[in-house]
C-alpha cells in the first residue's frame, strides 16, 4: 500500500471511529438519568467518565441487549488495569533502560525478541517493573518467557503475578525469587492446557 493510500485509510478509520464513538456517547447521555450523569462526570479522567457511565444499571441493560458480552468485557478492562498495577506497576522503555543500564533501542530489541515482557497500551509499550531486580532482569525470566511464547502479553502478566496451584499457591514471581525455577518452568509449559488442577 502506498503512503498516500495508507494515510487515506487511517483518515477513514479515524472518521468512522469518531462518528461511532460520538453516537455511542449521545446514546449514553440519552439513557442516563441526571444523578447517574453527575456521578459519571465526576470521574477523574475522561476515560473514567466512560467507564463509570457504562457501569450504570440503566446503561448496562441497554448495552447488553446489543452485546451480551459487554459487561464481561468491561470487567476485563478493569482486571487489566489491576494487573498493570500489581507488583510495583509498569514503567516506560526509557525508565526500564535506565534501570538496566541499556538504551531504549536495546529495550525495544529485547521486547521484540520476547526476552522482556511488554504490554501494548494504545500506541506505546509499558513494562512491568518487577522484571528488574537490582540492575538486571529477574533470574530465569527469559527462559520462562520463552516457555510462554504462545500466549499473549496479558496472559503472561497474569501468569507471573497470580498465585498458582502448581506452585503451592505461590505466584511464579515469588517462586522465581525463591529460586524455584524448574517448578515455574513446568507451570509455564502447562499454562492453558487441559490438565489436572
Amino acid at each position: 500500500m502506498s503512503r498516500a493510500l495508507a494515510l487515506k485509510s487511517i483518515g477513514t478509520e479515524h472518521t468512522i471511529f469518531q462518528r461511532r464513538a460520538t453516537r455511542a456517547v449521545e446514546n449514553l447521555i440519552a439513557t442516563l438519568d441526571p444523578t447517574s450523569l453527575q456521578e459519571a462526570a465526576s470521574a477523574p479522567t475522561d476515560i473514567g467518565v466512560l467507564f463509570l457511565a457504562l457501569q450504570q444499571p440503566g446503561v448496562l441493560g441497554s448495552v447488553l441487549e446489543q452485546d451480551p458480552l459487554a459487561e464481561a468485557k468491561l470487567r476485563g478492562q478493569i482486571r487489566r488495569k489491576e494487573l498493570l498495577e500489581t507488583e510495583g506497576g509498569v514503567i516506560g522503555p526509557e525508565e526500564l533502560g535506565g534501570l538496566l543500564g541499556i538504551t531504549r533501542q536495546s529495550v525495544d530489541k529485547r521486547r521484540k525478541a520476547g526476552t522482556l515482557l511488554a504490554l501494548e497500551i494504545g500506541t506505546r509499550f509499558v513494562y512491568p517493573v518487577w522484571q528488574v531486580e537490582g540492575n538486571k532482569t529477574l533470574d530465569h525470566l527469559e527462559q520462562v518467557l520463552a516457555a510462554l511464547k504462545d500466549h499473549d502479553a496479558w496472559r503472561k502478566l497474569s501468569f507471573f503475578v497470580h498465585g498458582n496451584i502448581r506452585l503451592g499457591g505461590l505466584s511464579p514471581l515469588q517462586a522465581l525469587r525463591a529460586g524455584e525455577y524448574e517448578d515455574v518452568l513446568r507451570a509455564a509449559r502447562t499454562l492453558g492446557e487441559h490438565g489436572a488442577a
Binding site: 470487567r75 499473549d152 496479558w154 498458582n164 502448581r166 492453558g192 488442577a197
Partner: peptide
C-alpha cells in the same frame, strides 16, 4: 488423557491454573 465429564470442569482445569484469576481473554 485429561478430560472431564462436565464442561465446567474442563474449563476450570484449562483456564484457572492461577488463583484469583477471574477473566479469560476472547482470543484465548
Amino acid at each position: 488423557l485429561y478430560a472431564s465429564p462436565q464442561l465446567e470442569g474442563a474449563f476450570v482445569e484449562t483456564f484457572m491454573q492461577e488463583l484469583g484469576r477471574t477473566s479469560v481473554s476472547i482470543p484465548e
